[in-house]
Amino acid sequence: MHKRVHYAFTVKRNQKNLHHQLATLPRAKASVKFSDRTDTHGRLETRVVQAPAVSDLGVDFPHATQVAKIIRHRTQRKNGKRSRETVYAITDLTSRQASPEHIAKIARSQWTIQNRLHFVRPTAFAEDASKVRTGHGPDNMAALRSFAVNQLRATGRTNIAAGLRAMSYEPFRRPLDLLCLT
Rank of each mutant, 00 (worst) to 15 (best):
M1I: 01
H2S: 13
H6P: 05
F9L: 01
V11W: 00
N14D: 15
A23S: 05
L25N: 03
L25T: 00
P26V: 04
R27Q: 14
A28H: 13
A30E: 06
S31G: 15
T38P: 02
D39S: 10
D39W: 14
T40L: 15
T40V: 15
R47H: 01
Q50G: 00
A51D: 03
A51N: 03
S55R: 13
D56C: 12
L57M: 14
L57K: 14
P62F: 01
Q66W: 05
Q66I: 01
Q66L: 01
A68C: 02
A68R: 06
R72N: 10
R74G: 12
T75W: 09
Q76W: 12
T86K: 11
T91D: 10
D92F: 02
D92P: 07
S95W: 04
R96N: 09
Q97K: 09
S99L: 03
A104R: 12
I106R: 11
A107G: 06
I113K: 02
H118W: 07
R121I: 00
T123D: 00
A124P: 02
F125E: 01
A129L: 08
T134Y: 13
P138L: 06
N140Q: 11
R145E: 00
R145A: 01
A148L: 03
V149K: 02
V149D: 01
Q151E: 13
A154L: 04
G156W: 09
N159D: 15
G163I: 06
G163T: 09
R165H: 11
S168C: 07
Y169Q: 13
E170M: 03
E170S: 06
P175K: 01
C180E: 13
